[in-house]
Write a protein that binds this DNA or RNA. Structure first.
Length: 274
DNA sequence: TACTGTGTTAATAC
DNA sequence: AGTATTAACACAGT
């Protein structure tokens, strides 16, 4: 399940082989035209054919291919993978799209649940208007977070998962950040104490940064490059650790449902306020 | 066989 | 307007 650190890892792994390539065409595979979202393969190709990729970046959980004119945005959703070559075990019926470059190189978009999508837009504003602040960017300050939480009565976890508020956090890193700050995930955002907001702010940045250093987290599916997996899975404190001891107090971690999402927490460290 | 889990959007209800 | 809930998407795994 790629979140910000995993998408960043993918970007770093593919950027060197994509920059400078000129797109001949992008085909959808296995009749899966939906990979282009709502537009037709013809229209998508009209926009990208002959254009050079001049940079590869990330915004939230989107991979951004900057073209000499315009942008391709790639969202991996849960199981999308970008491969520069197909391995012997990569079954072709999981392919949803292929980039064909004029050099002869290819980029394969493999996605066995087929939720991943490709989008084209002429400017970054298409994406920026959907997404909130970058948690590793300069706008993610303590003051901004405190003000944002004060304005909302929503439960903190679904608020942090809302990409139009903060872009890039998903189930793993929200659970980890809330545990670090001793915040129960169902706490109304506007009831969280400033001291806890301060820890949440710092912990979120630290956890994301550390995870990027370890190439992200692999629970089941995440891979990058030629089948490498993320090592941050070994640093997780609560996510996917139901029944195992809390690293702080040894109380068994529990898994509950909040806003229809599996949610991991320490029932002793993270108490819901009255 | 029925259910779950993933991220996101759209639709709907309050 | 803000918030919460649900379905839809697709499919491997249990």
């Amino acid at each position: 399940m790629p979140e910000l650190p995993e998408v960043e890892t993918v970007v770093r792994s593919i950027a060197p082989s994509l920059i400078g390539e000129v797109i001949n065409c992008v085909t959808c595979e296995n009749d899966y035209c939906k990979v282009f979202s709502s537009i037709s393969p013809q229209l998508f190709n009209q926009s990208v054919k002959g254009r050079e990729i001049i940079n590869v970046n990330r915004r939230g959980k989107f991979i951004v291919l900057e073209l000499v004119y315009g942008f391709i945005f790639i969202h991996l959703r849960m199981t999308g993978r970008l491969l520069t070559q197909m391995g012997p075990n990569d079954r072709s019926h999981h392919l949803t799209a292929v980039f064909h470059f004029e050099s002869g190189k290819k980029l394969f978009f493999k996605d066995y649940r087929k939720f991943g999508r490709l989008y084209y837009a002429e400017s970054m504003s298409w994406l920026n208007k959907k997404l909130g602040v970058e948690p590793l960017g300069p706008d993610f300050t303590f003051n901004w977070l405190q003000a944002g939480l004060a304005k909302s009565s929503r439960q903190i976890k679904p608020l942090l998962l809302d990409q139009s508020f903060i872009a890039g956090l998903g189930n793993i890193y929200v659970d980890e950040g809330l545990w670090a700050a001793h915040i129960h995930p169902a706490t109304p955002a506007n009831k969280i104490k400033p001291e806890q907001i301060e820890i949440l702010h710092r912990a979120t940045q630290e956890i994301l940064g550390e995870s990027i250093k370890k190439n992200g987290t692999t629970i089941i599916n995440f891979q990058f490059g030629a089948g490498n997996t993320g090592e941050f899975v070994n640093e997780l404190k609560v996510f996917n650790r139901a029944g195992q001891p809390c690293p702080v107090c040894a109380t068994p971690i529990i898994k509950i449902r909040i806003a229809q999402r599996g949610t991991h927490l320490c029932p002793k460290c993270q108490i819901l306020p009255d």
